[in-house]
């Protein structure tokens, strides 16, 4: 019982100390959200751009006929 209390106390103090002040963790970690959104947006852009190229190729094939 006492042991677990001690470890709990240690954990909580440890948690407080291990606050790394990296950019990504500042401001309530909002930068993580921004990064996720930018990844999604670039993924979607890549996807739509590929679709664009594919349709462009098909158009060329048709006009070549």
């Amino acid at each position: 019982m006492l042991c677990s209390f001690i470890t709990m106390a240690q954990d909580s103090t440890a948690n407080k100390k291990v606050e790394m002040a990296g950019v990504m963790r500042s401001n309530g970690k909002i930068y993580v959200v921004v990064t996720v959104l930018v990844i999604i947006l670039s993924g979607l852009t890549f996807y739509v751009a590929r679709l664009d190229r594919k349709i462009g190729k098909m158009e060329k094939e048709f006009s070549g006929k």
């Binding site: 909002i30 930068y31 959200v33 959104l37 930018v38 947006l41 852009t45």
Partner: peptide
């Protein structure tokens, strides 16, 4: 205008949250 679209969205996503 496709590039412009993505640039505007990037701006909205980043500035929108920060």
């Amino acid at each position: 205008w496709k590039i412009l679209s993505v640039a505007c969205l990037l701006y909205a996503f980043i500035a929108g949250f920060l």
